[in-house]
């Protein structure tokens, strides 16, 4: 019997496909998310919009909150560690968390190095803004990728940019002759073997979700049509007027993302979505998607 294999790590991500992973900060919110049909919840102390507003250093969530949420729901539970903070990751693994998100939403602990995720039995999801970054994370052992977007803004524009970038770079890499792949690997700063794999298969070797700014059913549909395997919704649910209704609507939109009639139906009467932020209003040093490399 073997445990903690790559197949088991990537396999869980396969099971989450076509689903919505929701940020929650309490048992009550976790139960609403499960009731709405979330495939997984991300246990947090504060949702990204509040992290952004609070400023200061954002760290791993208190294990007590995480354990309570793990007890409250039957779906898998994820939690975030800071970029490069392998001690936080070790703590999360010891709690029995189902997935660790090494996340730019928290303040990075290491400006140069990410966690060596091969050292862990628990699977990791990591953020990426382009193909090179995605392949570096996979090279470090990530079993799932999510495009970063810009968390806590309620603005989908960065999520779209990152999804389109990765999609276009995959298409380009897939079309190249073999002899050009080494120079592509050099330019992207990506492991050569993984560039070859993308060239041969025309896709990422792991599941790719979209995150950061998705806050309506239409946003979910847009990003799914651009090729996401599923969506993370952070602030978009519990910063909206009617979280349960919004959460259910985004779940249905993610399943039926190609069907405008259903999207119209679930978009009706949802109340106010979260208040969004125009990206140009955010100073460069406060952009979360620029964290990590």
């Amino acid at each position: 019997m073997e445990k903690g294999t790559l197949k088991l790590k990537t396999g869980l991500a396969e099971m989450l496909k076509g689903g919505v992973i929701m940020d929650v900060t309490s048992v009550e919110q976790a139960k609403i998310a499960e009731e709405a049909g979330a495939v997984s919840v991300m246990a947090l102390e504060r949702i990204p919009a509040d992290i952004r507003a609070a400023g200061g250093v954002a760290r791993m969530t208190d294990p007590e909150i995480i354990l309570k949420i793990m007890d409250a729901v039957t779906i898998p539970v994820m939690a975030k560690c800071r970029i490069g903070h392998f001690a936080e990751a070790q703590i999360l693994e010891s709690l029995g968390i189902d997935y660790i998100d090494e996340s730019e939403v928290l303040t990075p602990a290491d400006e140069k190095h990410h966690v060596n995720k091969w050292n862990f039995k628990v699977p990791f999801v990591c953020g990426a803004t382009n193909l090179g970054e995605a392949l570096r994370r996979i090279g470090e052992g990530a079993a799932m990728i999510r495009t970063k977007g810009e968390a806590g803004t309620g603005n989908v524009v960065e999520a779209v940019r990152h999804m389109r970038t990765i999609r276009d770079e995959i298409k380009k890499a897939a079309a190249l002759p073999k002899e050009e792949l080494m120079s592509v690997a050099k330019e992207m700063g990506a492991p050569y073997e993984l560039v070859v794999l993308v060239n041969e298969t025309g896709k990422l070797p792991v599941v790719n979700f979209s995150a950061g700014g998705i806050s309506t059913p239409a946003d979910a549909s847009l990003i799914m049509q651009l090729g996401a395997d599923g969506v993370f919704v952070g602030s978009g649910i519990f910063k909206s007027e009617n979280p349960l209704k919004m959460a259910k609507a985004i779940v249905e939109a993610t399943t039926h993302y190609k069907n405008p009639e259903i999207l119209a139906k679930v978009s009706k009467g949802l109340g106010n979505a979260m208040n969004g932020i125009e990206l140009s209003k955010i100073p460069n040093e406060e952009l979360m998607s620029a964290r990590g490399w």
Binding site: M1, E2, K3, L8, T74, I97, D98
Partner: peptide, 14 residues
Amino acid sequence: QRNSYGRQIDSFEE
């Protein structure tokens, strides 16, 4: 019974 062997860390191949 759902999740009967435990959490993800108890997932296995055989």
